[in-house]
């Protein structure tokens, strides 16, 4: 199987362990992830905050390049995914302003957009029928005994009609199901889709610490040993802004898939601010000798 792969900016810096673990997992499953040539930044929250239509224009350039590749586009970053998926939907719905942007960008790149490229978040890709079966067949280290809080955040779930791949976007299940498939025990908890405030993390940290504190506390209250995210902004924020005295590990989904596949996770996990290795060692999921 071959797919197009759009890492996005964070996966090459603050969340490089998300990028590295995604690539390792794809390789281990025998899937070729071909990096989208010359991709640009999606603009994240800033992309739509102060200039009208900029985030759509940035997304259209990436969609045009992806369509030229002729493969499904797999995206691990929730912000990139949200920008691509929502722009794709707006174009499909025939929004006149988006169509004008599309024509301008087509002219700039010298190719036409047909609306055929499929955009998949890494979560829905790994949980899909075909890849899910591949995954089940290759699990070598079941994550037995790990109690995990699946954290979906905003960008994978809202706006529901344009980006969500869930039956009930207020109560998402897909990550829980995938973690169960890996042998872990997802907990039932209250803050699956609450916002962590990542876009304000730098200019208004006091507000963000409050939001992160509530999410971390809710995960603890539900008995979770760790939180799992599928968004580089959520992970950086939840890992770095925990309340005084709190140290709950925050995993990227692909890191845990990698552990279950028997890959060596040390090079990913040593980048975390809250060390996640003691928890995995306590459950005999990794060995100290492989560090």
């Amino acid at each position: 199987m071959k797919v197009s792969y759009y890492p996005g900016c964070s996966l090459q810096s603050t969340a490089s362990e998300y990028g590295a673990s995604t690539e390792a997992v794809l390789r281990a499953l025998g899937i070729t992830g071909k990096e989208l040539p010359d991709w640009n930044c999606c603009g994240a929250t800033s992309g739509h905050a102060i200039y009208r239509g900029l985030h759509q224009a940035l997304a259209i350039r990436n969609l045009l390049i992806a369509e030229g590749e002729g493969l499904d586009l797999v995206v691990p970053c929730a912000a990139c995914y949200n920008a691509l998926r929502s722009t794709r939907q707006v174009l499909a719905g025939g929004d006149p302003e988006a169509l004008r942007l599309k024509e301008e960008t087509e002219h700039l790149l010298g190719r036409r957009y047909q609306g055929e490229v499929r955009v998949l978040h890494i979560l829905e890709f790994l949980a899909g029928e075909e890849v899910g079966a591949l995954l089940s067949a290759r699990i070598r280290v079941p994550l037995a005994g790990l109690k995990l809080a699946s954290y979906y955040g905003c960008l994978l779930t809202r706006p529901p009609r344009t980006v969500s791949f869930e039956t009930n976007p207020e109560q998402p299940r897909l990550m829980d199901d995938l973690l169960s498939r890996l042998g872990a025990s997802p907990v039932v908890w209250s803050h699956k889709t609450e916002c962590c405030g990542a876009s304000l993390s730098i200019p208004a940290p006091e507000i963000v610490c409050d939001l992160v504190g509530k999410i971390v506390l809710a995960a603890r209250r539900a008995g979770a040993d760790a939180i799992v995210t599928a968004c580089p902004l959520c992970q950086t924020n939840l890992d770095g802004r925990q309340p005084e005295g709190e140290k709950i590990p925050v995993f990227f989904l692909t890191e845990l898939v990698g552990v279950a596949l028997g890959l060596n996770p040390h090079k990913w996990l040593r980048k975390h601010l809250v060390d996640a290795r003691p928890l995995l060692k306590a459950h005999n999921l990794i060995t100290a000798s492989r560090a």
């Binding site: 900016c9 010359d38 994240a44 200019p203």
Partner: peptide, 19 residues
Amino acid sequence: ADFHRQFLASVEKHGRVHE
């Protein structure tokens, strides 16, 4: 406002944000 502007200035300059 400054955060959004600096983020976007980086994207405008390089095509990707340099954090």
